[in-house]
Structure formats: C-alpha cells, structure tokens
Amino acid sequence: MALPISRHKALREWKLYFFILPSLLFIGVFSYFPAGSAIYHSFFDWQGGDNKQLIGFENFSRALHDPVLWSSFGTVSVLIVFNLIKMIPAILMAVLIHRLKSDRAQYGYRVLLVVPMIVPGLVTLFIWKFFFDPNLGVLNNVLDFTGLKTVLVHLDQFFGWDVFFANAPIGWLSQPALILPSLFLWGFPWIGAVGVLIYLAGLQSIGQEVYEAAELDGVGPFQKFLYIELPLILTQVRLSLVLLIIGTLKDYGLQLVLLGDTGGPGGRGMVPGLWMYNRAFIAGEFGYACAIGMILFVFILGLTYLNNKYVRVDK
C-alpha cells in the first residue's frame, strides 16, 4: 500500500502531481472524450462532418428494427460458443505439459509453444485465408489427400446440406453455409500460447505431495484432472472465459480480414462490431454507427457487471 501522507507534506510534494498529469491528459483526450462523444453523437444524424441534426432516439429505434444488427448478434453468440469450445485444448495441453516429469522437457514445450507467436497475428490470419483457398488451399488438399472429402460428400448427400460436392473444390470462404464452420475451424488446433502459459502457472502451485497422495489412493488420470488440476486453474479459466466473451463480442478484425467489410457472402460472418465499422466508414453513417457502438457497449457493460458480481476472481 502507498504510504499515507499528511496534508502538510502533500502540499510540499505538490510537484508529484506532474507525474500523473501526462497520463491523465492522454486518457482524458483519447479515451474519455471519444467515449462521451460517442454517447452524444448517437442522438444525431451525423455524416462525420460539421453538419449534424439532433434526431433523438431515432438511431436506436432504427437499430431495434435493423435485421442485420440482430442477425449479427446471433452470429456473435455462435462465435462465443465456438470460442468456449476452443478453450479446451489449451487447458488439456497445459495439464499434459504439467504432468511431464522432466523439468527440461516442460521448459522445452513452453518455448515451442511461444514460437508461433513470432508470426504476427495478422500474418497468421492471412496464412489461414490461404489455407481456405478453394484451389491451392492447404485445407482442401488435406481433405482430398486423406479421403475425408468423400466422407464429407457422403454426409452431405445423407443430410442434404448442399455444400460439399464431389467434383468441385470446397469454397470455404465463398459459400454462405460454410462461413461459420470456417470461423470455427480457423486456428486449429486452437492452442493459444498465452493461455497455456497462464494455466501452467496456475498448475505450478500444486505440490508434488498432492500427486503422490493421489497415486497412493489409486486415483486415475481423469479423476486427477477433475479433482486436483481443474479446481486449481479454475480462477485462470474463469478469468480467460470472461475476457474471451468480451473480446469476442467487440472484436471484428478477424471477420474484416477473412471476409471483408460486408461480412462475406450473404453477410453470414457479420458481427456487431463489423456492422458498426461498415456503417461508419463504408456508408458514412457516423451517428448510426455510434448508436450501434452504444448498444454493443451496454451488452459488454452488462457482462462485466455480471462478471464482477458473480464470478469472483480471488487475487
């Protein structure tokens, strides 16, 4: 804790306020001002220039009846579910690494995990875009090579999906029905280095004697996970769960890069953030974009509130 300070001494130390002033100035101008401006402008018909017209709640009532916005919230809910599933491999990976006996091997795997981070995130996205390419793409090649494509075609005929055909390459990013599956598949095997390292740090606090006691009691590997390991990383899991949900709600870079600013064919990859971006910078409807931002903001704020109230993260 910071030392308490008498009023007299604080007066003598007034120069200390200059230490915080720059930071304060920066967040005031570039964080608080835009936030206030967004609230203010969500009540205006505004093209981004000097002309604006107060229209009250019209932007919001328009948003209420905007089918694109509502379907985009549907899409982002699906993506959140996807991302929750994608958390599992990182947890399992961390547990596997932790259970190795040799410390050297553990460190080696940690380093290997970090290696993919040398590729900038955007480049990874573009490499995946290349994987999804229908003709030269790696994914279609792998499916052809392993014969999985025939399986997919048979399944397609059986269920009547109408997306996989024996004589045509699979258009992962060009067929509306395949947009969501592609957004799921992206990043396979879904091991985020940061996540694994965070879980590993949590697992590190398990003493060796706990394992020894468990083994003496004849506890199997699965039970060990359920009763020893999972409870200890639950804090980290919950924390990354919350961050993940909020992150997925507001992120739209992935969709912008893979599918373009209209959310791909049929707008199937449209998410609220991307719709806000689209309205502001493609259609020039800045006022409406601010209103979409506010709606999204309320959603996220609600989640943050629920999180602080019900998901206690013990420090």
């Binding site: 101008v29 570039f30 964080s31 001002f33 835009p34 936030a35 401006s37 967004a38 402008h41 981004g48 909020i246 709600l249 507001k250 953030g273 806000m276 971006y277 502001a280 910078f281 800045f286 974009a289 601010c290 931002g293 506010m294 999204l296 903001f297 996220i300 704020l301 943050t304």
Partner: peptide, 13 residues
Amino acid sequence: LPGVANIVPLFTL
C-alpha cells in the same frame, strides 16, 4: 469500459 464505441469518434477527433 470497453473501448468498442470509441473508434468512430476517435476517427473524427
């Protein structure tokens, strides 16, 4: 506070 709604006013700022 999520910085999500910021990007549009930030642009005009």
